[in-house]
């Protein structure tokens, strides 16, 4: 029944999906945290930048950002992100686009987490003589992260599925392979089901594990 799978590197394609997800998740987590920090900073320029970034990036379709990353950054400006092979260049550009896009959502999730931390926590920290960055790093963000594990888990699941957009710039991940197979094989519904199942295998545990983590690390007040 599953003969049509023969000759295709299904695991390899999903492995690329996993790699895209992991690198983009790390990148968006770091960049999104920095953006959230800017959004609550006392410097108006930083607040303005972060607000503008989030509003612009989250309102542009990911496909457009992905294509811009390839056509604009690489083909026009020649930015290859330190890679030589086309395959590597595309992969890195896709990670950059995914991370830049997802960071806007990480920033917003984190900012709602920052809002759950009582003002008194920051006041007590400032009263001790901690600097703004210390207050943020030691007191506010650790509590904010614990409050937004679930929303971040949603962002991660969305990111996992969004990696399929990378096929638009030629990254051979799961959905790229799916399109190939649909063109060459007759079992359309089965192929779709196989790939749907593959994504559920990736995202379902993410949601379950992070849901458990969320309860585990919740700050008791």
């Amino acid at each position: 029944m599953f003969d049509f799978l023969e000759g295709y590197d299904l695991l390899g394609a999903f492995w690329v999906t996993v790699q895209l997800t992991v690198y983009s998740a790390l990148g968006s987590l770091i960049w999104g945290t920095l953006l959230a920090g800017m959004k609550v900073s006392p410097v108006p320029l930083m607040r303005g930048f972060a607000t503008a970034y989030v509003n612009v990036v989250r309102n542009i379709p990911l496909t457009v950002i992905m294509v811009f990353s390839s056509l604009g950054l690489y083909q026009t400006l020649g930015i290859a992100l330190g890679a030589d092979a086309t395959e590597d260049i595309n992969f890195r550009l896709a990670v950059l686009a995914l991370a830049a896009y997802t960071a806007a959502f990480v920033c917003e999730a984190l900012r709602s987490g920052i809002n759950t931390v009582p003002v008194g926590q920051a006041e007590a920290a400032r009263a001790l003589g901690l600097s703004f960055t210390q207050v943020l790093r030691l007191i506010i963000l650790p509590q904010a992260f614990r409050a937004v594990v679930n929303p971040l888990s949603n962002v991660l699941i969305a990111l996992t599925k969004n990696t399929t957009v990378a096929s638009a710039i030629g990254v051979v991940e799961a959905s790229y392979l799916m399109k190939d197979m649909i063109e060459a094989e007759a079992q359309l519904i089965l192929i779709a089901l196989v790939f749907a199942f593959g994504f559920i295998v990736l995202t379902l545990p993410t949601g379950l594990i992070l849901g458990w983590v969320s309860k585990k690390v919740a700050v008791k007040r």
């Binding site: 006041e123 009263a127 007191i139």
Partner: peptide, 25 residues
Amino acid sequence: QEGKELARLRADVGMVFQSFNLFAH
């Protein structure tokens, strides 16, 4: 003004709040 100088000065001024404000985590 708000900044390093103020932080240094605050370190010398202890504060106890109505709602305790112990670091919850």
